[in-house]
Simulated assay, not measured.
Amino acid sequence: MPAAIRVHQTGGPEVLTYEEVATPLPAPGEVLIRQHACGVNYIDTYYRSGLYKAPSLPFTLGAEGAGEVVAVGEGVTEFKPGDRVAYAGAIGSYAAERTYPANRLVPLPDAISYEQAAGMMLKGMTAQYLIRRTFKVTTGQTVLVHAAAGGVGLILCQWAKALGATVIGTVGSEEKAALARANGADHTILYRSEDWVRRVAEITDGRKCEVVYDGVGKDTFPGSLDCLRPLGMWVSFGNASGPVEPVPMLLLSQKGSLFATRPTLGTYVAERADLLATASDLFETVASGKVKIPVNQRYPLKDARKAHENLEGRGTTGSSILLP
């Protein structure tokens, strides 16, 4: 029987259990995927801990993966057994096999490996909409990326640099600073030992940034607003340090008529045409070599607990994947 990581009650990494489960059958409109790799993301810890509510208990964790179609349900015409596919969205990916709605799958081109896809579907498509749609980065702009050595951070740094921006990244160690610089960051700031708001002002000669990409949350607010020039945009897309307190609207006015947004990937790819366009842009950018997907941690599926401990302990860089 295939295996999966199940959560019977929410809590710390210790609630992740490795179990044998029955092979699921695809319902009408679904396909059955034999997974080659499963992505590990910070949002998984929110579901595991109960910060985000899962549909029911018990449940299988994980929101992205890649593999091959082994069976299709009634009415599915876009995919057939043997097709290479990838996805990000509905939870349930920490498994050797899973079903998935065919209309939320994307075809995986031969130029992208299963491991690359599992390491980038959620993070890469997030980076794509952040940098191409939420705030469209162009040549000559200055961008601040928090957690620049993380999964989304490394992709954002590379992509923004490829678009001609000056990239400033905050990181937690010298090792992560070197990694961020190797992936496009022009300047790095050690947020634990440096006054990062002051350093941003120094680096930019007081002009500050057009946009701040903030996946950290509580610990970087309201400092992120102080790194923006007038009319700049604060893009808060994650809560790695905890959720941000409610933001007084008057504060945005006082800091320079700032824009603030809390986007999610789900909204940006709700329509199938947008999903396919987002994935296609990501695949093309990665295949071109402009953005590389560093899969720096690989774990057997049964070691999902260790993967979560390392992720929450900020002991990871780039992408982490589970191998069924």
Score class of each variant (00 low, 15 high):
V70M: 04
V15G: 07
T138H: 12
K136H: 08
A177S: 14
V72T: 15
L156H: 05
R133F: 05
T220F: 14
P248F: 01
I33H: 04
A279Q: 09
K292Q: 14
E174A: 15
A149H: 09
Q141A: 04
P26F: 01
A160V: 14
L108G: 00
G172D: 02
A147C: 09
R199C: 00
S93F: 01
A177V: 09
A149S: 12
R98L: 02
G289L: 07
E194I: 08
A277N: 08
E74D: 15
I189T: 06
H187F: 12
A273I: 13
V216G: 02
R34Y: 02
A178T: 13
A66S: 09
P324G: 12
I203F: 04
Y213P: 09
Y213W: 09
A127D: 00
R229E: 12
V15H: 10
L282R: 06
A260Y: 03
A4T: 06
P300Q: 02
G82Y: 01
D219W: 12
K208N: 06
P24I: 05
I131S: 13
L251C: 01
G238H: 03
T264A: 14
V152D: 08
Y52E: 07
E30D: 14
R48M: 08
N103D: 15
G29H: 08
E115G: 03
A304H: 04
Y47L: 14
H187K: 01
S193D: 05
L25A: 15
E312P: 10
I91C: 05
I168F: 13
A277C: 04
K208V: 01
P58W: 05
E19M: 07
H146N: 02
P300I: 00
A3C: 10
A307R: 08
S280T: 14
T134D: 12
L179K: 14
A287G: 09
K302Y: 06
W196D: 01
T23M: 10
L190F: 02
V137S: 08
G75E: 03
E78V: 05
K306N: 07
L231Y: 13
V152T: 14
